[in-house]
């Protein structure tokens, strides 16, 4: 398992990128799986770079959420190396799938053998943030019970 600091910073970055609270992210049970996935594919140095850009912006913006979001777009999502990785992290949380990085990224920064499109685990799919975001249930997975599909979903507001 990752160091306590890295795990906490990874969660803080993920919350800023996804719009879901750390509580909701932890509630999916996927924190360690995603941190391991991304570290295995792009390397720990790149993960460190991701969280340190976020940490720097948090320090610089002093609680101004709008300014933090602008900073993330400017310094993280627009960065040639970190941008595609950050977008992949958002996709991980939302759909539980790692998408192969763009060809240009692979050409420039070196391909990883593990960088191919895959669903992290069966739980990652049903725990995706996509479902609460669109106000639906993952078909056939939540909620269980005969006839439950006939009832409107009970999804918490974010």
């Amino acid at each position: 398992m990752a160091s306590t600091d890295l795990r906490a910073e990874f969660l803080a970055l993920s919350a800023a990128l996804t719009g879901f609270s750390v509580f909701r992210l932890e509630g999916t049970g996927q924190t360690d799986a995603y941190l391991t996935t991304i570290g295995d594919i792009v390397g720990e140095a790149t993960v460190d770079a991701l969280v340190s850009v976020h940490r720097g912006l948090v320090d610089a913006t002093g609680g101004d959420e709008a300014e933090l979001q602008r900073g993330l777009r400017r310094e993280l999502l627009s960065d040639a190396k970190l941008g595609p990785v950050a977008r992949n992290l958002v996709k991980l949380w939302y759909v539980g799938t790692w998408y192969e990085l763009p060809a240009a990224w692979r050409d420039t920064f070196g391909p990883s053998l593990r960088d191919r499109t895959f669903v992290v685990s069966p739980e990652a799919y049903t725990e995706g943030l996509l479902w609460p975001a669109v106000g639906a249930n993952p078909a056939g997975a939540k909620p269980f019970g005969y006839g439950m599909w006939a009832k409107p979903p009970r999804i918490d507001t974010v």
Binding site: E26, G27, G145, Y146, M148, R154
Partner: peptide
């Protein structure tokens, strides 16, 4: 009872969310 069944699975989901919080 059928409505209660749906509630059980929802409660399970909420319990899981709580147990994953350090």
């Amino acid at each position: 009872l059928n409505d209660a069944m749906g509630d059980m699975f929802r409660l399970k989901d909420l319990a899981g969310q709580l147990m994953r919080q350090p």
